[in-house]
Structure formats: structure tokens, C-alpha cells
């Protein structure tokens, strides 16, 4: 997979946002020439999806044209949104058949205006089954019940994607400290039991670690139908200036689109850059943990691991990739 950043502007203001450093770039919107380059790259890599991220991607002034261009490829469109989608851009998304389009809406997004909250409810109502909710865990004590209500009220996908709030390496966003992972795990278990009763599936995003849960709890999650795994790999977020980033959290591990001809080659290159740190994890005991050594655990978010290193700063990391 690869994610195309089409704008850095956003109409939400989330303290945990891992794209906020990116929002400081001078360029704000992707050009059509660059969009076509990205689409060529994705097609030549043999991928079946075009995934748009931001900022808030629907704020691109030519969003409708972008959607038309993507539909012309025949590939599926996946959109990552805060749900505050301008009314004028909603119609082109409603028109896309369900099997060709999905949108992941982050429910924690905090709008910059009250009217936007009303707008989001309208978006959920309009896009209904095309919407999957995403929840970012910043506070370890959380309750997903209100969002289960949204799923029932608006007929959304019966699925919630759970992500841990992760730090930007060298940045200043809020994130969930690994010291709180055990508390977060308890909340996940409480919510997973309710989700089972509601016939809603929970799914883990990247950065979860095995030791958050006991073996019995992993089994319990499995029994409740949770897609629970521990993984951290290159996300391939393609920035406006043509860099393929490991992920938003670690933009220093990156390669240029000019030097790479496929997503497979990009993954190889980025894995090579981070290889040095892979034997470590987010906790001091990770490096001697059999779960990390046998790859059943990813050791947590690489950005958290990098923060443990003395003397390592974004500039040193950038130099290391040269």
C-alpha cells in the first residue's frame, strides 16, 4: 500500500495529530502533474488501491477532479478523513459504488467550529456503509459506546480501527506513553467485549505490542473476533515534495520517489534504513524478549524506540540515510 498526501491543510485541530509537522510545509496542495506521477507509481507497482491522506484530503480545491481522475484508473479509492467533508465534495463520493470506495473517519478529530460537528453527522449519514470509524487512543481510559451508536444510527461498517497515539520523532504532538499501554489494554478488553455483543469488529492499527496483553487476553481478543496483531512496517506516505516516508511519525526515514520504481523497492530501501534499530523496542527489556526475536511482536512504534536513544536527533537520523 501507499498513501498519497494531497494537501497539508486541515479543518481539525487534534493534539495527537502525527501529520502536524507536515502541515508546516510551504506547499499546501498537490499539483495534477504530481498526482499523475503518484498514480503511475501505484499502478506500475501493481497495487489495487489509491489511498488519499492529508491534512484533510477533501479540502483540496480540486478534490472533485482528483476523484474523477482516480475513478478513471479503475482502482479503488480509500480516503482517510476527519469526517468534516465540505458539502460540495460529498456528492462525488456518494456517487462511487461501495465496492470501489471506502473512507476511514477518525472519530477523535476535534473540529475548529461547531457547525463542522453537524456537518460530520451529515457526512456519516450520506456515506453510511462506505464509512469505517477509526479511534485514536490518547487517553488510556476510553469508551467506544457512543461510536457504536453512530454505527447503528447511520448504518456504517460494523468495524472500528483502533490506533495508538504515537509521537512524531523530533516533533511535539501528544501521544500515549508506553507506561500507559497496560491501562489502554484493559480498556480495549472492556470495549471488545461490548463490540462482540454489538456484532462490531475491532481491528488494531500499527504499534501494538504483545506484552500489553497476557497470552490469555490475546486468546480472548481472538475469541471475540478482534483483528489483533503487532506490526510496524513502512506505511509509504508520499509527501507533496515527492518523498516516500516510512510513516508520518518518522519522516527522516525516507527515500525519494525519483530513485524508486515500485512500492516493493521502497519497502526494501526503508527497511534497510531502519534495520539498525529493529532489534530494539520501546522498552529496555524488548531486545531480550523472545516475542520480538521470533517476530511475533514488532517491538512497538519505531518512533518510540528512536526516542530512547541518546544523541539521536532528526538531523543525525537524516544523515544516516545518506
Amino acid at each position: 500500500m501507499a498513501n498519497i498526501i494531497i494537501t497539508t491543510i486541515c479543518n481539525a485541530n487534534c493534539s495527537f495529530c502525527f501529520a502536524r509537522e507536515n502541515a508546516q510545509e510551504s506547499q499546501k496542495f498537490i499539483t495534477f502533474d504530481d498526482l499523475n506521477d503518484r498514480i503511475d507509481f501505484i499502478q506500475s507497482s501493481g497495487l489495487s488501491q489509491i489511498r488519499l491522506i492529508g491534512g484533510e484530503p477533501t479540502l483540496h480545491p480540486k478534490f472533485q477532479e482528483i476523484v474523477s481522475r482516480i475513478r478513471s484508473t479503475g482502482l479503488d479509492l480509500i480516503l482517510f478523513s476527519n469526517g468534516f467533508i465540505p458539502q460540495k465534495n460529498l456528492g462525488c463520493l456518494e456517487e462511487i459504488p461501495q465496492e470501489k470506495f471506502a473512507v476511514l473517519v477518525n472519530v477523535n478529530a476535534i473540529s475548529k467550529g461547531e457547525n463542522l460537528e453537524i456537518l460530520r453527522q451529515e457526512v456519516l449519514r450520506s456515506l453510511n456503509i462506505k464509512v469505517t470509524l477509526g479511534f485514536t487512543i490518547l487517553n488510556p481510559f476510553f469508551d467506544l459506546s457512543p461510536y457504536y451508536q453512530w454505527i447503528n444510527d447511520y448504518g456504517l461498517q460494523r468495524k472500528v480501527r483502533l490506533g495508538l497515539a504515537q509521537p512524531i520523532f523530533g516533533g511535539g504532538n501528544q501521544y500515549l506513553s508506553p507506561k500507559n499501554y497496560r491501562n489502554a489494554a484493559q480498556s480495549i478488553l472492556n470495549n471488545a467485549q461490548k463490540s462482540k455483543n454489538e456484532n462490531i469488529q475491532l481491528e488494531f492499527d500499527c504499534g501494538f505490542v504483545r506484552c500489553m496483553f497476557t497470552n490469555e487476553e490475546w486468546q480472548q481478543l481472538d475469541d471475540w473476533g478482534v483483528i489483533a496483531e503487532s506490526h510496524c512496517g513502512p506505511n509509504l506516505d508520499i509527501s507533496l515534495d515527492g518523498q516516500i516516508l516510512h510513516c508520518f511519525s518518522i519522516s527522516q526515514i525516507a527515500t525519494s520517489l525519483d530513485k524508486i520504481d515500485s512500492t516493493k523497492a521502497a519497502i526494501t530501501k526503508l527497511n534497510d534504513q531502519r534495520k539498525l534499530f529493529r532489534e530494539f523496542g520501546i522498552y529496555p527489556h524488548c531486545s531480550e524478549c523472545p516475542e520480538l526475536n521470533n517476530s511475533r511482536c514488532c517491538g512497538g512504534c519505531l518512533s518510540l524506540t528512536l526516542r530512547r536513544f541518546h544523541n539521536l536527533n532528526p538531523e543525525v537520523l537524516r544523515k544516516m540515510r545518506q
Partner: peptide, 12 residues
């Protein structure tokens, strides 16, 4: 002093 280029990490 530790060479400023050298990175290191406390382990268990």
C-alpha cells in the same frame, strides 16, 4: 566525553 555522533540506548 561520548563522541556526539555516537548513539546509544539503556537496555534492561
Amino acid at each position: 566525553q561520548i563522541n556526539p555522533d555516537i548513539i546509544w540506548v539503556n537496555e534492561s
